[in-house]
Amino acid sequence: MGTSRRTRLRLARAAGRHPGLLRPGGGEAGRPHPAGRRLGDPGSSGDWTWRYRLWQHLVSSGVRVDLVGPYEDLFDNVTSTQGSDAYLDPVFDRDHAARWGMAFGDESPPVGDLVRRYHPDVVVEMLGVNDLGWRHAPPAAVDELARRFVADARAGDPGVDVVLGEVAQTWVPGAPEYDASLPALAADLTTGASRVVAAAPAAPLVQGVDTYDAAHPTATGEVKLAAGVGDALSVLGIGPHSPWPLPVVPNGPRVPATLTASPGDGEVMLSWQSPPGATAEYVWIRDATTGEAWTRLPDPVTGTSWTSGGLTNGDSYEFRLQAEKGSVAAEDLYSDVVTATPTPAP
């Protein structure tokens, strides 16, 4: 596929990553569409998403790409509801077909229906982790589900190409075995009319660094996933290979909390508005009167308020917050610093 045409991609994700569809239209650029993998898409509040990073790679390479699908939203990981629009950067083609927790065994809408409706050139699929980790399906059974997925996509369009994504969470039981089977499965399913390729992350994901929980990617995880899909698409003639070395990006929430402080007798009451996707805040404190260094409290605070007690009346205290999403805190970003001076009760 030449880059002078528009490629339509359908991306899907279940339990953290998406499948996607890509289709070139006459005289238009390619368009990717996510459909359902659990590790990265649809993504959750406060994310860029790997779809965003893949879109950036393709567009910056001159590929006219169109992501397609019935949804544009994120999952709100704080309220556990769909419908968030809190992308870190919403300026990209946000269409996708992913739902949080999707599995091969219960994809909805079915891939065949989506192919018939959106006419993608390529379906990018990254399902399987929920089937393995939460449904406890053996790798061979998930392999058969992937085979059925390709057949269902072809029922919608016999000429559609498919990217089968690995389960990047290799710590999930059965994932290494399933991933090892994908290249042979892709080769077996490839026909003259419909190509199938396997996609691995550009580098292995590290749990707790490239994910903020057992499945879902941080910014560094997004980069690895997007680069792996980009490399797979390049095999299909869509765009160049992803650049190497991978770009260095910071992890943790990228928007600081808005913090206020109210002094009391030997205490200061803090309240804040957390950024999208943040699940807790680390509190930092220092006694500015004595000139002590900043100290971070050992445990993050959930909710939107906290009281610091045992303070010296008359001393000026400074506070700041460091947002955390899941198990990963912002590495380099703090809230504004607020100052308060505890005073005795009248």
Rank of each mutant, 00 (worst) to 15 (best):
S305P: 00
E324I: 12
S308N: 04
D315K: 14
G314W: 01
A293P: 08
S316Q: 06
P300W: 13
L311Q: 06
G326I: 11
G291F: 01
E324Q: 14
L321T: 03
D299S: 12
W306D: 05
A288I: 12
A323D: 11
L297H: 03
L321I: 03
T295V: 08
T307D: 03
E318N: 04
K325Q: 15
E318P: 06
T304C: 05
G291M: 08
P300V: 12
T290F: 10
G326E: 11
D315N: 10
G291P: 07
T302K: 02
T290G: 00
Y317L: 02
G309C: 11
K325F: 13
G310E: 15
L321S: 06
G303T: 11
T295P: 01
S308K: 08
S316M: 01
S305R: 14
A288W: 07
W294L: 07
Q322G: 05
L321C: 06
G303Y: 01
Y317D: 01
R296G: 05
D315H: 13
S308L: 14
E324R: 15
V301K: 02
T302Y: 01
A323Q: 14
R320I: 13
R320W: 13
F319R: 07
R296H: 01
A293E: 13
T290R: 09
T312M: 10
T307K: 09
S308R: 15
W294G: 07
R296C: 04
G310T: 12
L297F: 10
R320Q: 15
E292V: 04
G303W: 04
P298W: 14
P298G: 10
T307C: 07
W306F: 14
S308M: 11
L321R: 03
R296P: 04
T290Y: 04
L321E: 02
G303N: 01
T295A: 13
T304M: 04
T304R: 03
S308E: 08
G303Q: 01
F319V: 10
G309L: 05
T290L: 10
G303V: 06
W294Y: 03
R320T: 13
Q322L: 05
E318F: 14
S308V: 15
A323T: 10
T289D: 02
T302E: 02
V301H: 02
T289E: 05
L321H: 07
D299V: 02
K325W: 15
G326P: 06
W294E: 07
Y317P: 00
G309R: 12
T312N: 14
E324K: 14
G314H: 08
G314Y: 00
Q322P: 00
L311F: 08
L311A: 05
G310L: 10
Y317H: 01
E318M: 12
D299C: 07
D299I: 01
T307Q: 00
S316E: 12
A288C: 03
Y317T: 01
S308D: 08
W294S: 06
V301F: 03
L297E: 05
G309W: 13
